[in-house]
């Protein structure tokens, strides 16, 4: 049976009708048409459905939508809402850290969560944090470089 759900996504409160069985991924895509959130594996292993929940990365395919009520959800659409790209997005472009781009939103959100938590991660910390985001074009070298450049830019005050 569908019930009302009030979900805060990218700073906006949406009133939706959902089943208890609906995952956050399904609601974000099918009801809110947030296409940057994508299903890649359905089991939390690939990271293409990553969203931030209260600033922390989660696999939206493993979260029941109803349990996201009262939390702040951010998708990549929320990063450039004002029309200006987030410095991480800008850096992914400049550092060529994307190819087919399917994994890119998930990576960008993971990098944002990482740098928000830890503004000067070690190489091992970067690798550990991003190891659950898979990229089959395998642009990992470019992605690691983008993290470092974004980190520097953030230190210099960019957002």
């Amino acid at each position: 049976m569908k019930r009302e759900l009030a979900l805060t996504v990218n700073g906006r409160l949406a009133k939706l009708q959902v089943e208890d069985a609906d995952t956050l991924l399904e609601v974000l895509r099918d009801q809110l048409n947030l296409w940057s959130v994508r299903e890649g594996c359905g089991v939390g292993a690939c990271g293409t459905c990553t969203v931030l929940m209260d600033g922390k990365p989660v696999s939206s395919c493993l979260v029941l939508a109803r349990r996201a009520e009262g939390r702040e959800i951010v998708t990549v659409e929320g990063l450039a809402a004002s029309g200006k790209l987030d410095v991480i997005q800008e850096t992914f472009i400049e550092e060529r850290a994307l190819q087919c781009g399917y994994c890119t939103p998930g990576f960008i959100l993971s990098v944002k969560a990482l740098l928000d938590e830890n503004s000067t991660p070690t190489d091992d910390e970067v690798r550990e944090y991003l190891s659950g985001n898979l990229c089959r074009c395998a642009g990992y070298g470019d992605i690691v470089r983008a993290v470092r450049v974004a980190q520097e830019k953030r230190r210099a005050g960019a957002t």
């Binding site: 296409w35 790209l85 472009i93």
Partner: peptide
């Protein structure tokens, strides 16, 4: 640069 870079970085592709 890739033609599609901005749309991919914003997920709007």
């Amino acid at each position: 640069y890739r033609k599609d870079a901005a749309q991919k970085a914003t997920g709007q592709v």
